[in-house]
Design a protein around this nucleic acid. Structure first.
Lengths: 225, 225
DNA sequence: TTTAATGTTCACAAAGTATTCATATTTGAC
DNA sequence: GTCAAATATGAATACTTTGTGAACATTAAA
């Protein structure tokens, strides 16, 4: 399986190093940022960051702002680190869509354990086979089977189908699809998606109908009852 | 939407009540068990329990055993409660597939916030579904159901209905509707709204009557008592 | 470097939707 | 009830979005 990328954001390099060392030991790939602005830059420049560990108190742009900004684009899991033990702060964090909230000082081992727990829950690690309505996606093997027959998909087609399946039942705007299957800074034509959807539908046979067009909005993957 | 079921397992009834009260306030349905064996019974007798809050120290069968047992059958999210602050215990918990680990004493509000965070991550709590008088609008899925039957609405119709429902009971002038459902710089005929209202009413069947005309003023969405 | 596969863009056809408009109907004031 | 103004309605038209095939660009493999 590919390495899992984690972005660690803290203004203290000592703290970043501490966290990084423990994550690297568990085979995570660690990216770093020393303030909020940098965090956003790094996040948008790298496509598949799986989790963000975010310090609250930072110069330029604090953790809350970073969290808000990122949440408007992405559902990536976020763990907040803070020195304060203020309950209201913590509740505020959860309202912003934070997944976990850890007070300094903390045990690095436990931080890593929580990272793994959250990634497990968000299907990033663990079972790499998703199966829905006769469609079987093996992320680790980069393989798709439909009704137990292998289907040859290109890289982008695979990514797109995986994104659809992982978000089944949800209406997905072209913008959202671009942000998640392509890079955030992709400046291409949104119609590219249409072309890929067309090819996907063709290759999927009957099951191509599971990808519904929502006119004026985007697409939705849905399996019949 | 259906209520979300949470199973609270603790041998102290005082503790169960505390947790239950806070969960009920947030519209969760709470089931209780006072020891490990009971917890398993309740879990297997109830199909759709969405999350388990599990005390570690209990007579008969402790939290770890319960967790192990349940994990061999189910991926239901589990939050462990414990009096100890022992790191090794906590790591052991995560290894067993625990999602969260909270030390007593804890803030009930924060417990509830963590419950919600985990359920959000496991896609149990979807983006809010608005439901009024038999009309159900799922914005995330871009879907409208009337009396549990899906209704096909066009993009504008969907937006218009959503606007009505989100402002039920309020008299809405055409100008206001134009500014909110259309763009502020929309330069078209206000009669356009009439046409869309007409189509909406048709597609809504009986429930079309919920959109009232306010003569000389605009429209109002209202459900009968 | 060449070749093959994949990804992207584009133009046009096809489908679906929004808007306008003419006419019918309803409403409230007198 | 009558009238004028407002709203409802259906059909025609204008517009937008999407599907599709082919050309072009890019990347990876040979």
């Amino acid at each position: 399986m590919d390495t899992v990328k984690v972005l660690v954001v803290d203004d203290e390099s000592r703290m970043r190093k501490l966290v990084k060392d423990f994550l690297v030991k568990k085979d995570f790939e660690v990216l770093e940022a020393s303030n909020g602005e940098e965090a956003l830059d790094v996040f948008y420049d790298n496509k598949n960051i799986s989790l963000i560990i975010l310090d609250v108190m930072m110069p330029k742009m604090d953790g809350w702002q970073v969290c808000k900004e990122i949440r408007s684009y992405s559902d990536v899991p976020i763990i907040m680190l803070t020195a304060k033990g203020d309950e209201r702060d913590e509740l505020q964090g959860f309202d912003l869509g934070v997944d976990e909230y850890i007070s300094k000082p903390f045990s690095p081992k436990i931080l890593v354990a929580r990272v793994e727990a959250i990634l497990r829950r968000s299907n990033v690690i663990g079972d790499s086979v998703i199966s829905v309505g006769g469609i079987e996606i093996d992320k680790a093997a980069h393989l798709v089977k439909i009704d137990d027959k292998p289907v040859e998909l290109s890289f982008k087609e695979f990514e797109l189908l995986t994104y659809f399946v992982e978000n089944k039942g949800l209406a997905l705007s072209r913008e959202k699809i671009l942000n998640n299957v392509w890079n955030y800074d992709y400046f291409g034509d949104a119609r590219t998606i249409d072309t890929h959807v067309k090819k996907l539908r063709n290759k999927m046979g009957d099951k191509g109908e599971y990808i519904h067009t929502i006119w004026g909005m985007g697409y939705k993957f849905e399996v019949p009852e």
